[in-house]
């Protein structure tokens, strides 16, 4: 190796004169300012016209503390068995509903993906998914209750139908985001459409799609805990009764059971999701996989 030396030939040109120029004026940025002003104006309008009695707001904390006190001090241990049974039914509703949603959303989502479905089927599938997404589960639950009668089946169907919209949309997004290479490879060896799907598309997309199913299960657990309000089974009916008959201690116990169950399910499920995405020996990602905020 030759002796390293510093030559002047490598010294670069001095910074261009443009950068030496005088200080620029502070630019005005109207976009963010406009957004902030719009938000502030909307907030003022809403507060001004709401007709809410400020005294009611002031009384709120005191009332809240009083009711929380009635709920939690002491909890009504007598309701624990019933509440647990109700919570288990809610979990069953969420489980069956999520499976219904997953099974139906997978083909719909594939059809809605631009790189899989044809143009016509993509548009149709997207519209169906959009429509389903705009129907709240509670409304679906009421419709199912009036069709097939009171009980958890109505709840499971409502949850299932309600999950199709978001799950299908997310499935389509994941499939559209996959690498083109394996699809081309599967086509190049003469694979038929179904074979291309099975070997070119699904292996890439399935882990993420399954992670969304689990994520949706977490959301569905919350949803199924309230469907009982309209007679669709689970712990919700009990809760709404307790609250309307002012049995606050019983309601508080049931709410605690809901909170504990959802937190436990979230923790287990997020661990499994990480493993599905990263693989058994993969690195541990720091954040949950949320590609679009619609996942919630």
């Amino acid at each position: 190796m030759t002796a390293p030396h510093v030559s002047t030939s490598s010294t670069p040109t001095p910074p261009s004169t443009a950068e030496k120029a005088v200080r620029p004026d502070k630019p005005r940025r109207y976009g963010p300012m406009g957004l902030a002003l719009t938000a502030a104006a909307a907030g003022l309008w809403a507060a001004w016209t709401s007709g809410i009695d400020p005294a009611a707001i002031l009384r709120g904390p005191e009332q809240l503390v009083r009711i929380l006190g009635l709920m939690l001090l002491p909890p009504d241990l007598g309701t624990v068995p019933d509440a647990l049974a109700g919570m288990i039914e809610s979990l069953q509703i969420a489980w069956v509903g999520t499976i219904i949603g997953a099974v139906i959303s997978l083909p719909l989502g594939l059809l809605a993906a631009k790189n899989v479905g044809g143009r016509f089927s993509t548009t149709m599938a997207r519209q169906v998914l959009n429509l389903l997404r705009s129907l709240p589960e509670l409304v679906l639950a009421i419709l199912f209750v009036s069709m097939i009668g009171l009980g958890p089946l109505a709840g499971a169907l409502a949850i299932g139908l309600g999950s199709i919209g978001t799950l299908g949309k997310l499935t389509a997004e994941v499939v559209e985001g996959i690498d083109r290479g394996p699809i081309e490879a599967a086509e190049a060896v003469g694979g038929e459409r179904f074979q291309v799907l099975r070997w070119g598309v699904l292996p890439q997309a399935l882990p993420e799609i399954m992670a969304f199913w689990l994520y949706r299960f977490e959301i569905n657990v919350r949803a199924s805990a309230i469907l009982g309000l309209v007679g669709a089974g689970g712990i919700g009916g009990m809760l709404s009764n307790f609250l309307s008959y002012r049995r606050y201690a019983a309601a508080g116990t049931a709410i605690l059971i809901v909170i504990a169950t959802t937190i436990a399910i979230d923790m287990v499920s997020s661990r499994i999701r990480r493993r599905i995405i990263a693989g058994p020996r993969g690195p541990k990602p720091t954040a949950d996989p949320i590609p679009s905020a619609d996942a919630l």
Partner: peptide, 17 residues
């Protein structure tokens, strides 16, 4: 996060009427 929106509504209807 673990409490569903509707449950909040039930509780706060009890609080604020």
């Amino acid at each position: 996060r673990s409490i569903p929106d509707l449950l909040y509504a039930m509780v706060f209807v009890a609080v604020f009427s």
